[in-house]
Simulated assay, not measured.
Amino acid sequence: MIGSIATATMAPESVSFRITRNAEDLAETIHALSYRLVKLEQRLAALEIQLDHRNQEEPPDLASLDNVERLLNDCRNLLEIAPQQLAEAA
């Protein structure tokens, strides 16, 4: 009962102050969240650019790996042919 009397006798200025204070807190929270969102969007954009850059670098790397694979196959073929020729020559 004492709580209800205190609530009933609150001055309108006090209620207005609380509403204003809550609105300011909400505004600060929204500002902080907006700032974080902008930072996350910037990080995402940077990561996308990095990914695009890596994707552009892959074809020369793949071509180089293909050349190495061909060289390895050629070496294997030479190693297989050499013993056969030696055996045929003997």
Rank of each mutant, 00 (worst) to 15 (best):
V15W: 01
Q56Y: 04
R18Y: 01
T7G: 03
L72E: 12
E41Q: 15
S34V: 01
V38G: 03
A11D: 15
E69V: 10
E41P: 02
A6W: 04
D52P: 02
E69A: 15
I5E: 00
P83W: 09
A90N: 14
Q42V: 02
A90Y: 11
A46T: 07
D52V: 06
A6R: 11
L79Y: 03
T7M: 05
A32G: 00
I49R: 04
R70N: 12
N22T: 05
Q84W: 01
Q50F: 03
L86P: 00
S4I: 06
N73H: 11
C75L: 14
D25Q: 08
T20N: 11
V38F: 06
L78G: 06
L86I: 07
L72W: 07
S16D: 11
P60K: 00
E88H: 13
D25C: 00
E80S: 15
R21E: 13
N55L: 12
L44H: 02
N67L: 11
G3Q: 12
L79H: 08
D52F: 11
Q42L: 06
Q56A: 11
L51A: 07
T20E: 10
A6N: 05
V38L: 08
T20S: 12
G3K: 10
R18K: 05
L47T: 08
L40M: 12
A45I: 07
P12T: 10
M10A: 11
V15A: 06
S14M: 10
I81L: 14
A45W: 03
E41V: 10
L78N: 12
I49N: 02
L51N: 09
T20Y: 04
A27W: 06
L65K: 10
L86C: 01
L51Y: 04
A89V: 12
E57D: 13
D66A: 12
E80L: 13
E48P: 00
R54K: 13
T29I: 02
S64C: 07
P59H: 08
